[in-house]
Design a binder for these strands. Structure first.
Length: 878
RNA sequence: GGGCGCGUAGCUCAGUUGGUUAGAGCGCCUGCUUCACACGCAGGAGGUCACAGGUUCGAGUCCUGUCGCGCCCACCA
């Protein structure tokens, strides 16, 4: 058998990757357990894969594999970033045709091309989406891809509309002048920016005085239709009922009394621009003020802005300020920090504009969703996300769902050219429902993508039809996702699920951390600080990348991902690989077939021990996955495989193997433990374990075709063996003590040292039985003697169980002296601590008995140990 | 302004319900090319658990406050 010295993941992953993906979309029948998850982008669509996805998919994948290996059927619902994934597929293919490596392009250029290709290859994209089983309705292009989802979207829209929960209204919306679309509140990101607060004088008509208003956006003054003061603000009593002259526009506008003005802030006087500020808009409604739009959809000043018309809004600001300054109307300018809203997608400064849009009334939908979480029908892991969820749900605002984009589900509303009324309909209407006219035009807008995403848990199962899938799989059991889309998606799925299915969409929501880079920055495509999964999986292997992510994935914490971590994960993969290499090569040498026949009799201590440890490991791993403690899974397996199986078990077994010995019990047990370890590891490191498992069992008859379908090891009380664990522990202590002494005296590793092991306990008998193991692993030759070590016999290390004395080469006792002195110091410290506790009556009376007993026992050990160390120190030659 | 979270070894982080001398990986130091693995083996150094109080027989763990950091939400011009 040829096995490479170093594990080269690239050689094995592509083959299994294909299987991995295919296996994902498998539909069980009569499922008992359901898993609800996002699609894992196929490896050939890596363009859309980033570390955040990878973490999410890894956690999902671990969970799915675990369930499947436990014989529980899973349904994995492929999910939602259809357009993104499909586009990336096209782009990847296009690049491959061109022979361009996407990594040489750079993010920006890549994104640019994605957008270009999106338009150019729209048709191909749609076909690809069909292949992926995803769906999208390309609104502006007027054809429908997936009748299912489109139908569900229209159904929901119509039902909500008929219930009065969807309405069309003129409101202030967040408008992106670059994307030319309205945005929901959530799509606006606030950015702290240094700006100015301009104080502008507005002369009061029929009076000498002027009202000074403070504003951060002077250009909007062109659209002012009032000036507000607080009714309680005594400073401006004389201005009540008067008007002011709006500078630059020479318009007379009223002074209104409104709580909009906060006497504490600025001058206490506010300019009111109902067309360009949400607060002013509300105030304008209260006072029936005209709304003058001075900025248009492209961010340019309108004709209403007089001589500033046509100017860019930022240019206009400079001109307005300059002109006001010329007129001597600038009272002062103070620097001011403000949060400017920007478009999440393109970072353009958002412009609040009055516009007619479609909205969903959220309060009636939010209330049942709040209750569902409160009474535990939906459970968050970790639980503290409930607070965040509630915070948002209790303060929820109506949701602007119409978008002026060219992709998306088109709004099923038609306007009548004759009577102007709206017809909302599931099917394309032939006549206006109000006047019967046939002159109908569909609303050109499309829906927010999150609108259809919110329907995903049931639309993917066939809703609105009453399908078997729907009845079987709704509600699903688990959603794994990031908190960044808690509001965008999770909350809305819960609301829609309750509204249309009458039940929650999922029982549990596991919320993972965000992936951050070494500088603690959130990794995101737009920020450009991503570690490219393509690169790292190629460099370190997908298994190593997965393991690195999992090791950091403690619930409730973010993940800092560094290359160092992947280096060590790769080392672990290599360690497993080489353990296998050792086993397989030795099997050949021994004439053993590389297959597993199940464990043989556990005749030796190390066998009883490793089975007991394996059992504990299985127990911990199962529990950890069940509780979504992925970091613990990884850690527990790492510890067991490396530091128990490799470091001790295999090392001991080396002494047992002889050439051509055939299939001994030793072999059967080693292989059995290794094979079970592979199965335990499989969800965490699928490729490596699959490859090794296949090599281990070349004859597949009677076995699952893949390790992914093999049984996940479950804890078995019959394997637990306290005695073996305790004995092995002492054996390890003896060996470690000997190695310690060797290191202290700087012994040549090749030189076998003589010594004596003294013991009055079972350790002596243990040592007698395992003297070969001790002598080989520590490279010493020991005599065994009952009793305790005599003074001055050599250098010593002792435990409550035994004293080990080695003959020190001359001149190497100084290290021993220092070590003993330090040890004595430490012991004195802990003895003092224990004594203090045991001397305290309240402690004795209140602490539980086992705790007190434990400390008593420990104190006795410490004291015995101290005695030995002191005596050893005194026994050292001066 | 409101809410959430974090501050533990040089670095990145664990530490389930308070209970023996606080852990891991990386890095560092010492010694080893021992025929599975230098992506390795053996050994080692390194922490007043941010600070100050409090509860308790006992606090890294619970409570209060302070300082520092991060995130989310919010219509104060």
């Amino acid at each position: 058998m040829q096995i490479e010295k170093v594990y080269e993941p690239q050689r094995f992953e592509p083959h299994w990757a294909r299987w991995w993906i295919d296996s994902g979309v498998f539909r069980p029948s009569g499922a008992s357990e359901r898993v609800f998850a996002l699609v894992i982008p196929p490896p050939n669509v890596t363009g859309s894969l980033h570390m955040g996805h990878m973490l999410e998919h890894t956690e999902i994948d671990v969970t799915i594999r675990w369930h499947r290996m436990r014989g529980e059927n899973t349904l994995w619902l492929p999910g939602t970033d259809h357009a993104g994934i499909a586009t990336q597929m096209v782009v990847e293919r296009k690049l491959a045709e061109e022979g361009t490596d996407r990594r040489t392009l750079g993010r920006e250029e890549f994104e640019r091309r994605v957008w270009a290709w999106k338009r150019e290859y729209g048709d191909t994209i749609k076909r690809q989406m069909i292949r992926l089983g995803v769906s999208c309705d390309w609104g502006r292009e007027r054809f429908t891809l997936d009748p299912g989802l489109s139908r569900a979207v229209r159904e929901v829209f119509v039902r909500l509309y008929e219930k009065g929960l969807i309405y069309r209204g003129e409101y202030m919306v967040n408008w992106c002048p670059r994307c030319h679309t309205a945005l929901s509140d959530l799509e606006v990101v606030k950015e702290e920016t240094a700006g100015n607060l301009w104080h502008i004088r507005y002369p009061v008509n029929g009076s000498d005085r002027a009202l000074v208003v403070a504003t951060t956006r002077p250009e909007t003054m062109l659209g002012d239709t009032a000036v507000a003061i607080n009714p309680k603000d005594e400073r401006y009593g004389d201005a009540h009922g008067r008007t002011v002259q709006l500078p630059l526009m020479d318009r007379e506008i009223p002074v209104i009394l409104d709580t909009l003005a906060d006497p504490e802030f600025g001058t206490g006087v506010v300019k009111v621009t109902p067309a360009h500020d949400p607060n002013d808009f509300e105030a304008g409604k209260r006072h029936n003020l005209p709304k003058i739009r001075v900025i248009d959809e492209t961010g340019k000043m309108t004709a209403e802005a007089g001589r500033y018309g046509g100017l860019d809004r930022f240019e206009a600001r400079l001109r307005v300020v300059a002109d006001l300054d010329d007129l001597g109307l600038i009272e002062k300018i103070e620097p001011y920090h403000l949060a400017i809203g920007k478009c999440q997608r393109c970072k353009t400064v958002v412009e609040p504009l009055i516009s007619t849009q479609w909205f969903v009334k959220m309060k009636p939908l939010a209330e049942p969703a709040i209750r569902a979480v409160e009474d535990g029908r939906v459970q968050f892991v970790p639980e503290n996300w409930v607070k965040t969820y509630n915070e948002w749900m209790y303060n929820i605002r109506d949701w602007c769902i119409s978008r002026q984009l060219w992709w998306g589900h088109r709004i099923p509303a038609w306007y009548c050219g004759d009577c102007g009324a709206i017809t909302v309909s599931r099917e394309t209407p032939t006549a206006c429902v109000h006047c019967g006219s046939g002159w109908l035009t569909q609303d050109p807008d499309v829906l927010d993508t999150w609108f259809s995403s919110a329907l995903w848990p049931f639309s993917t199962l066939g809703w609105p039809d009453d399908t078997v899938d729907l009845r079987t799989y709704y509600p699903t059991s688990l959603l794994i996702t990031g908190f960044d889309i808690l509001f965008f998606w999770v909350a809305r799925m819960i609301m829609m699920g309750l509204e249309f299915m009458g039940d929650v969409p999922f029982r549990q929501v596991y919320i993972h951390g965000l992936v951050r880079d070494a500088e603690r920055q959130k990794m995101s495509k737009t920020r450009g600080n991503v570690i490219d999964p393509l690169e790292v999986t190629e460099k370190y292997g997908t298994d190593a990348a997965r393991l690195s992510l999992l090791l950091g994935a403690a619930p409730g914490t973010d993940i800092v991902l560094t290359e160092e971590r992947m280096v060590s994960s790769r080392a672990f993969a290599n360690k497993i690989w080489n353990a296998a290499r050792f086993l397989y090569l030795n099997m050949e040498r021994s004439g053993v077939e590389p297959e597993v026949r199940g464990p043989g009799a556990a005749e030796t201590l190390e066998d009883r021990w490793i089975f007991s440890r394996l059992n504990r490991c299985a127990e911990a791993a199962n529990r950890a996955i069940e509780q979504y403690r992925y970091h613990e899974v990884a850690q527990v397996l790492w510890q067991f495989v490396w530091h128990e199986f490799c470091d001790w078990y295999v090392e001991i077994k080396k002494l047992r193997f002889q050439d051509n010995s055939g299939l001994t019990n030793d072999w059967r047990n080693v292989l059995s433990v290794f094979e079970m370890s592979l199965r335990l590891l499989h969800p965490v490191m699928p490729f490596l374990t699959e490859e090794l498992w296949q090599r281990l069992t070349p004859d597949k008859t009677g076995r699952p075709v893949s390790i992914a379908l093999a049984e996940y090891p479950q804890p078995d009380p019959a394997l637990a063996n306290e005695t073996a664990e305790k004995e092995m522990e002492i054996l390890q202590e003896i060996i470690t003590a000997a190695r310690n002494l060797r290191a202290d005296m700087k012994a040549d590793p090749k030189q076998q040292l003589d010594g004596t092991l003294y013991s009055r306990t079972g350790a002596l008998d243990l040592a007698v039985r395992h003297i070969d193991v001790i002598q080989k692993l520590a490279n010493v030759r020991l005599e065994l003697s009952p009793g305790t070590a005599p003074r001055g016999g050599g250098i010593l290390r002792s435990t409550p169980e035994f004293d080990l004395v080695l003959q020190a080469p001359a001149g190497q006792i100084e290290a021993q002296r220092q070590r003993l002195e330090k040890e004595i110091q430490q012991l004195e410290k802990v003895i003092a601590g224990s004594k203090r506790q045991l001397g305290d009556d309240t402690f004795l009376s209140r602490a539980p008995v086992p705790v007190v007993d434990g400390i008593r026992r420990k104190l006795a050990d410490y004291e015995a140990q101290l005695e030995k160390s002191r005596s050893a120190l005194e026994g050292l030659p001066a």
